[in-house]
Amino acid sequence: MRFYSKTYKTFQFFNYTCIALLSLACILPLIHILAVSFSSRDAATANIVNFIPIDFTTAAYKETLGNNNFIRALLIGVQRTVLGTVLSLIVTMMAAYSLSKEQHRFRGRNIYSWYFIIIMLFHGGLIPTYLVVSGTGLMDSIWALVIPSAVNVWNMILMLNFFRNLPQELEEAPLMDGAGHFRTLFSIFIPVSMPSVATIMLFTMVVHWNSWFDGILYMTKVEDYPLASFLHTIVVKENFSEVGVDLAALHQISNRTVKSSQIFIGALPILLVYPFLQKYFVKGIVLGSVKG
């Protein structure tokens, strides 16, 4: 039994309380929204719901899931997440494979590396990027949400370092047996590095699911908005002018329980992958930063 002074014990009491309150503060807003979404409309309007639903009902979710605009946005959100993640991963992994070769095995590697490091440091900014995206004819198409962000240099560096740490024989053996670089990458490297591919995939998915600004920028019609952009316009900004809804529908959308259910459905995919994310990110961040 270690000896602790009385002051330290008092400190620990306050410390535990403080950490517990901070942790609760991080989750309670979400629980409140969840409670509101499962409460009856009258209870929500009367502002009496705290963290437990009052007059439990799933009416709000029925209404949300019966709302075609919402479902359409949800599907576009899923679509851009899947498409964007796959595209970004393929482009990034192919580039990372080449860059993982040493300079003496692949002359030009350093030039390519600087080419990508530069875009990590400099950005054209909002307007020039917007002009290029519209100039390449991507406006109003789902490709505007996945192509411009496909090259992720940060992920490329993570992947490159992982490939580089694989045993060298793994690369030499297939090449000696007559497999080309393409086969080495797709049949050996990627299957072997599945855990880190999965990590990068999860993070890319979260970024895509959360992206809302590009949807607002590049989609001129609200019908083309992915869920995040839709939530921004309808739930956060309450801007109905672009949707062209009649007053009855407006009344329905502005209903607080329905809004809460939409917010919660928007957060749900993140909550579902969060346990898997948490397993990886501590390791990843520590590797990425302390190594520096």
Partner: peptide
């Protein structure tokens, strides 16, 4: 992709 969506905007 970097040329079109990163370098051209930088020049823009």
């Amino acid at each position: 992709l970097a040329l079109v969506y990163n370098y051209i905007p930088i020049m823009g």
